[in-house]
Design a protein around this nucleic acid. Sequence first.
DNA 1: CGATTCACG
DNA 2: ACGTACGTGAATCGG
Length: 876
Amino acid sequence: MNKLLLIDGNSIMNRAFYGIPDMTTNDGRHTNAIYGFLNIILKVIEEEQATHICVAFDLKKKTFRHEMYEAYKGTRKGMPEELHEQMPRIKEILQAMHIRIVEQEGFEADDLIGTLSKKGEREGFAVTILSGDRDLLQLATDTVLVRIPKTKHGKTEVEDYYAKNVVETYGVTPLIFIDMKGLMGDTSDNIPGVPGIGEKTAAKLLAEYGDLDGVYAAVDSMKASKMKQNLIENKDLAYLSKTLATIKLDCPIPFEFSEATYNDPFNAEAYTLFEDLELKSFYKRFSVEKKEELTFETVLIDEIDGYNALLAKLQKAKEVSFAWITQDGEALGVAVCMDLEHVYLIRFMMFITEAMVADNLLALSRDYQVQLACMHVKKLLSFLNFHEEDAVFDAGLAAYLLQPNQSEYEYDTLAKVYLDVTLPSDKEMLGKEKLGYFSFEDEKVQKWMAYQAIVPYKIKSVLREKLKETGMESLYDEMELPCLYALYEMEKNGIRVDGEALHQYGKKLRTRIEELTAEIHAMAGEEFNINSPKKLGEILFEKLGLKNGKKTKTGYSTSAEVLEKLTNAHPIIPRILEYRQLTKLNSTYAEGLAGYIRADGRIHGKFHQTVTVTGRISSADPNLQNIPTRMPLGREIRKVFIPEEGSVFVDADYSQIELRVLAHMSGDAALIAAYQADEDIHAITASQVFDVPLDQVDSTLRRKAKAVNFGIVYGISSFGLGQDLDISRKEAEGYIEKYFATYGKVKEFLDRTVEDAKKNGYTVTMFGRRRPIPELASSNFMTRSFGERAAMNAPVQGTAADIIKIAMVRVNRRLKEEHLQSKLVLQIHDELIIETKKEEVEIVQKLLVEEMMHAAELSVPLLVDANVGNSWYDAK
DNA sequence: CGATTCACG
DNA sequence: ACGTACGTGAATCGG
């Protein structure tokens, strides 16, 4: 039997738009509704095994029913621009997929669907209707199925309704469902209904009196009530609502279903559209031949004569790009490119050794003035001994500066953004295949290797040009590129950790954790997983009946913030808080860090340079930038980080660098003066904001003022500040106003920053680093507000990040220039740690403080605190 | 694999 | 009216 699927295009697009978080293409076109729409309909098409499909859309022109409603209530909300722009695109896609689109001027999508559904039934189709709108339930019959997708926790579930299911759920037949809408209305569909009558009352009335006419025939005999009054007063409204809710079944349909067959949806034409919109998750459905968009020849070099001939050519080249091919830390070969027509794949072997090729590459830069380019220089440095001076172009790093909000910078993404060429990704090409000697003979792997050399070759000039255009060329050349070498050295150096001390620390924690576990289980009266917020919530708020439990999303919140308010409500609470703290310390730090200690007794974490949107460095595997310090017990962990014999740690950190940057960038005289006089900034702020003489500012007031200062840097909101200080939004509002009255230029600066960001689409740091903030253009209040706060924060956080990068680069240079044996080991945003030979302590400390202080000339001094110690704990 | 929680600046 | 502070990474749970 033929299956007809009728899709309510507008309502499904609408559902998808609000159900799927914002998604955009690289050039900023929104695709979330398109993505969600396609996911829903493809899922249903598959389930239904549909043979014929129609997707109905409203046309822009107002319909009769709109006009009736607007006559009643004035305006109707238009759709947000982000959704609006997706409508023509989804239609294009459907057309390309040979899926029938139905539109009629003067008719809404549901009228068309109603008509088509009847026509389909008459012609012997099994009809299914897919809509996000419950209005369509009136079309359900014994054979016509209405399906309504719901997004639950990110997953789409579909509710199915035949006539009998409508009766089960709403107590009325589909036809009477229209009368029900007339009584209860439907806010989402702009149907007013009778005031005071909701689902329950409407269902009761209709069960008793049959339909709307029945209700009004009997209305006079009802006993006096508010409801009766409402019914009588709003009779016209009820009938108007019914008319509004009634779907037409007699629209003109100028085509036959034979023109709506579902056939060959995943064709080449559709593929180019999917590609254009970067809807990658659908690519695998297409079996079309992907056309090769980069044409080149791969040449395998695996004997010495060929290699020598190639080398001679490379030495004469001006620009050479390369990709070091590795597997599990072992080098297999290198792909090299010096023109657009060829990629040479050099396979390491007996007579073409890794060491030899590495030396030759280095010599290209140093002896033959060849400009080298590749993808991720830092990753290569353990194989290739390049230095800062070699200035190897790093395509990933350049691309990061241009678009720091991307999640990765692999060859396929870069090719798409900068060459408008779609290449298969790592995953698509290799899957889980392990590379080896014979991979050089596998055509697919050859391509993959080649891409990584030819992409940087091709995009280098594009990236250079864009860096110039955006004023970020010197940022790239003088800050980011040199910084990469300092970061690599920190990774290589690692930091020494006393494994035995770490083990003892963990043991101490675990003893206490066991005690707490037993006590908590005893108090709860059962054994349960304390680590499961879900279980814990049930125990606390249901079994033990603790009140509050207010913060929810997918259950009760059991965050420390909530639990702390309940500390005195039950003795189990403080134990859970302690348990949480200890298990965190144990699993993340005691046990977590232990797993990273290498044979040299040191932890070699990674420092990522292309992760954060603001320009900061991030740390991972393990994260060495979040080692505890705020709580005494956690801080103890820092005792296990120790220098090697004969060395100490010299640790230096900036004092309030972000607020100082703010003082400078805003030019606020009061703030600048306070810093120039080396005043206690939080105390001064307290005195100003709370109208208290400076000598009467107590610790509580100072703490509050500190929160205000932090809030300013974070992009202040009265709600956020209120939350942090546990005061009312109103009160927080007062603090902020007082702050801005004191530091007027700061307000001007923040306002100007947001305004410029809205105009340009990005913010800029003192050193020209940009942060795009697409959220500022959103029509969604929440999203836009976030963008505004981010815009206030980014120049400040970003400039501070720039400054410490400059300091790192200079410190690292001086350590080398002055032939010191001390080495950088950690960077924690505003802090640098140098493992320092004892005989170098004085000079290193001086050098470190000097370079940090003078990394930037601001209108306020950059103060640096420095300490020396035999562990990280002691040096701070 | 997303949500929750929590460690840091 | 909308419901949040800015920027990260890791462990854990549960679908």
